[in-house]
Design a protein around this nucleic acid. Sequence first.
RNA 1: CGGGGCGUGGCGCAGUCUGGUAGCGCACUCGGCUGGGGGCCGAGCGGUCGCUGGUUCAAAUCCAGUCGCCCCGACCA
Length: 565
Amino acid sequence: MTRLSSYFLPTLKEPPADAEALSHRLLVRAGLVRQLGAGLWTFLPAGWRSHRRVEAIVRSELDAIGAQEMLMPVLQPADPWARTGRLPIQELFKVEDRKGAEHVLAMSHEEAITFHVARELRSYRDLPKILYHFQVKARDEPRPRAGVLRTREFVMKDSYSFDADREGLDRSYELHVGAYDRIFDRCGLEWYRVASDVGMMGGFGAHEYMAPCPAGENEVALSAAGYAANVEVASATPRPVEGLPSAADAPEAVETPGQTAIEEVSRGLDVPAAALLKAFPVIAERRGPVLVVLRGDHRLNEIKLANALGEAARPAQADEVESLFASVPGFIGPVGTPVAVIADRAVEGLRGLVAGANEADRHLRGVEPGRDFEPEWADVRSVEAGDTCPSGAEIHLEPAIEVGNIFKLGMRYSEPLGATYLDESGTERHVWMGSYGIGLARIMAAAVEQGADEQGISWPRALAPFDIEVVALGKPGEESLEVAERLYSELGAAGLEAVLDDRAASAGEKFADAELLGCPLRLTVGRKGIEAGEVEAQVRRGRERRALSLETAAEEAVGLWRELP
RNA sequence: CGGGGCGUGGCGCAGUCUGGUAGCGCACUCGGCUGGGGGCCGAGCGGUCGCUGGUUCAAAUCCAGUCGCCCCGACCA
């Protein structure tokens, strides 16, 4: 019997002063987690129960798609990391053993799993395989933050798929899509699967699972029509420009002394910011100088630009603007520029625009893309609230936390680590891989953020540390404790995990702590209730109360519990 | 890595500017009352003032260094 009188659940009236994020404050206050160092967190008994519930859900859905659980070490020899080129990663913890041999603390397990697969899987008959484990990941984060949301050590479920060809990888990926959708549904989260950037690793496709919450580090673009994308890659139709100046036969120079900012030129010439052409001089790694042109009220999205260029680019320095772009910082524009121009699609078809004249204190008006300069068109701007999605619905932006990701790796690891197999014709081929991660603590934190109210946490039924909290009121020795214990046992017999508040504390303290801990259902047993033949039930979410009959309280409570979210 | 802030009983804070007996609330212990929304009375326990060095008759307070933690940004394979 789990009794609060002896359970290690140190609740706090006030959150630690340095806690800002809601989940951080509440997980600490409710006695679920404690900090050991920057980005290093201990899960106390009740917090670990929640964590394990998440784990159990993840495990059951992965097992259901035929994935096989295993376990790989955190401490690993550095050599495979050197071979895949990941050794220089800043976030990778490096350690030496007593002999001076280089090791790492794994931040993920592609190297380890591929190492094994390369040795053990030889034939197309051995494929496909999906392998996974729950393991601590170590990352030397430049900036841990927000409690358990971004830490230097955390438990992740990561699975890896191994297939003979691209079609096989697609199938393994789709299996994970299904499993992940079910996992986040079962966890009771509001979530979105969004297309994501494949990043510097390349790869063949990736999605992120995002849970909207105020402490989220990412931003997702959502629409009522079901559009969902990470702003890193989101694409949308811009709001039309209002008050565009009339078109001209040819660009005409105007004096704009000292007006280097969009806002200043807009005011000086009395045209909307959207009628300006914003020009970003960048230096691409291989292509060299490129002038990127956007609508004046839009922002450049560096990730989309890198994807459009097919390589990374950096902003040009002031001296480079003069030497390479033959222009003047603040007055740079696409008309007459000696370098290649990439223009955002939002300016396609617009006329009567204003652009920098590539001379100090002058702009051009009446500019028309396609006539006055010939750009390469690309979608390189950041979407913003008020844009419309492909189905025509308005887009809004929300902060969200990434709770999972799925990634088509291809042969990124099987090549350097020599993971090959012989196909039906006896030809040696590389294995096609995918990797799929889920952060367990982040699911907890997201659930807390999404469900909390003024009183504290309100867990989704599937993740609560306990299904039901039974509160026994009255002085020690009174009948209510006996009744509460009986109720606890009946709930256990019915398959629910309860916790009993048998502490010698006042009713107010017990209620406050129960609402802080956030179990979905609270049953209160007190003298008055017993005399009236009743037990009070309070649903945590909404805090609605109702009376249950003393005799059938357990049975009624189980029924009530099953209806909860 | 750039910017900002904070380290004083378990938690939240005051005291630092202007050097002179370390304080408050909560928590905790004991006794009593109360017993359906953090209740009341009384008596207690508990602090190397992050650390090191310096200045001074005297340092939580001034100076130098250092460590730790938080927030914003950058970064986030």
